[in-house]
């Protein structure tokens, strides 16, 4: 390798960009411990009072519960459908594989706002009652492409001869799927599930248009921002940052293990 005069500049730039990406999150966390009722700089005093207030808030418990219901249902449905779709496209897609995959990924090309209002219009046409169910339907549309993407990436490294061998030994399609394909896909399944969970757990725009009376956690943050900003917003935001960060770490690690495993 030649000596590279550009490298230090690129490194410094990258550090600056990372600062830009993380600084706002740190600022929110910092303000969550601020004693003053008004979020202004510089910070005055240290307190955990906003966290205490937050935990005492029963609306928060309900919102958290609703978010969990939605996220878990979304994960279950979109992981099952997405893995099925990825395997299906991989096995039977043939020359339509690309087109099928593109179709499945289309929702990624559509702003969330439009996914949300399109669903609202659709529900309106059929006079459907808005509830967590209508939210889940939207979240699955939103997360499905990511699941298919992650599973398809894993399948690129899949040796089809293993399935062929199982077939020759007389195993049925679903047995093969359960005994051969699924174990191979396990890391991708975990990563996809965590990714859908986080996407769903943090989603506000689609939820905003498709929910009825039930608030999810991001909807509660949105509601706080609309109807009364108190430092509790900082606390709840900080908690979501920490939780999401933890999920991201686990997801990335399991995905990484998957890739290391598939590299030959």
């Amino acid at each position: 390798m030649r000596r590279d005069p550009v490298k230090p500049f690129l490194a410094a730039w990258t550090v600056l960009v990372l600062l830009f990406l993380f600084a706002p999150l740190f600022v929110v966390a910092l303000f969550s411990f601020n004693e003053s009722a008004i979020s202004r700089f510089p910070i005055r005093g240290f307190t955990l009072a906003w966290y205490q207030k937050l935990f005492a808030n029963t609306a928060l418990h309900e919102a958290l519960w609703n978010s969990l219901i939605v996220a878990i249902a979304t994960v279950a449905i979109s992981t099952a459908l997405g893995i099925g779709a990825a395997v299906g496209i991989h096995r039977y897609g043939g020359r339509y594989g690309g087109a099928l995959r593109s179709f499945s990924l289309t929702p990624m090309m559509v702003p969330r706002l439009i996914i949300g209002i399109a669903l609202l219009t659709f529900y309106n046409l059929f006079q459907t009652n808005l509830s967590l169910l209508t939210v889940i339907a939207g979240h699955v549309v939103m997360t499905l492409p990511y699941v298919i993407l992650i599973a398809s990436a894993r399948l690129v490294g899949f040796d089809k001869s293993m399935e062929e061998a199982a077939w020759d030994l007389g195993a049925g399609t679903f047995t093969i799927f359960r005994e051969v394909t699924l174990p191979f896909l396990k890391p991708a399944v975990i990563a996809a599930a965590l990714m859908s969970f986080t996407l769903s757990f943090d989603e506000v725009v689609v939820t905003f248009f498709t929910t009825g009376n039930d608030n999810t956690l991001p909807m509660m943050i949105w509601s706080m921002l609309r109807f009364g900003i108190t430092p509790e917003v900082n606390s709840i935001a900080t908690l979501t940052i920490v939780a999401s960060g933890a999920f991201a770490l686990v997801a990335e690690m399991s995905l990484r293990r998957a890739q290391v495993g598939s590299t030959r």
């Binding site: 999150l25 929110v28 921002l225 979501t240 940052i241 999401s244 991201a248 990335e252």
Partner: peptide
């Protein structure tokens, strides 16, 4: 680089 993507859009705006 990826980590911030996992945090809420709303929170990042509010920040």
């Amino acid at each position: 680089v990826i980590l911030p993507l996992w945090t809420s859009y709303l929170v990042r705006t509010y920040a």
